[in-house]
Simulated scan of single mutants.
Amino acid sequence: METAHNTVARLSAQFDLRPAASAPELLAAPTAAALPTVTGEVEVFAIDPVIADTAALLAATGLGPETSANCVLVAGSRSGEERIAACLVLAHTRADVNKRVKKLLDVRKASFLTMDRAVGESGMEYGGIGPIGLPENYRILIDSRVAEADALIIGSGIRGSKLLLSGPTLASLPAAEVIEGLANEID
């Protein structure tokens, strides 16, 4: 298991870590606009877009899956009202969409947003979607294991960079809800 210090050291050896606020060119516009609402340190580093997907990034850096969190967008409806949530889970887990998320959204059926819709509504690139800068009507559901992590890699909104921040920083996002058991381990 990686410590926060080891994660930062490995990333610093391979990438130029910078305060995210000083590098808006490495962020999607909605992410850059929402950055001032984030409490805590957020760093950004440029990557080759070819390694933007979690498995490729972890293989390239040698980091374990506990150092990366994925953000998936899920929707469902009840009585004609659509309910959307961004679910943030560790890379070695999967959001429990069919039970936990469905119950939290109070919908009959929950499903992932299509790629076109996720990209169009978030203003972010597929493979780079993160919770910072999502539309205000999206709930942000964070698995408790994510909220407890000392150092995490998440999407910056573009495939050409990633953010590095702590779980408590993510949990402090204005719309964040920390949920116990939001995700299940991948077999």
Rank of each mutant, 00 (worst) to 15 (best):
Met1Pro: 12
Thr3Ser: 15
Asn6Ala: 15
Val8Tyr: 13
Leu11Lys: 09
Leu11His: 10
Ala13Asp: 10
Phe15Gly: 08
Leu17Phe: 07
Ser22Phe: 02
Ala23Trp: 00
Pro24Val: 04
Thr31Gly: 01
Ala33Gly: 04
Ala34Arg: 03
Leu35Thr: 07
Pro36Tyr: 04
Val38Lys: 07
Thr39Glu: 14
Gly40Thr: 10
Val42Pro: 11
Pro49Gln: 02
Pro49Phe: 11
Ile51Val: 15
Gly62Ser: 06
Gly64Lys: 13
Pro65Thr: 09
Pro65Asp: 12
Glu66Gly: 13
Ser68Tyr: 14
Val74Ile: 15
Val74Thr: 09
Ala75Asn: 04
Glu81Tyr: 01
Ala86Tyr: 07
Leu90Ala: 12
Asp96Tyr: 05
Leu105Gly: 09
Lys109Ser: 12
Lys109Ile: 12
Ala110Lys: 06
Ala110Ser: 13
Ser111Phe: 02
Thr114Trp: 05
Thr114Met: 11
Thr114Val: 00
Met115Ile: 15
Asp116Lys: 09
Arg117Trp: 06
Ala118Cys: 08
Gly120Pro: 03
Glu121Arg: 03
Ser122Glu: 09
Gly123Ala: 04
Gly127Trp: 07
Gly127Cys: 07
Gly128Glu: 03
Ile132Trp: 02
Pro135Met: 05
Tyr138Gly: 04
Tyr138Thr: 06
Leu141Phe: 15
Ile142His: 07
Ile142Thr: 01
Ser144Asn: 08
Arg145Gly: 14
Ala149Phe: 10
Ala151Ile: 11
Arg159Tyr: 03
Lys162Thr: 04
Leu165Trp: 11
Ala171Cys: 05
Leu173Ser: 08
Glu177Arg: 13
Val178Pro: 04
Val178Leu: 07
Glu180Ser: 13
Gly181Met: 08
Leu182Val: 10
Glu185Ala: 15
Ile186Asp: 00
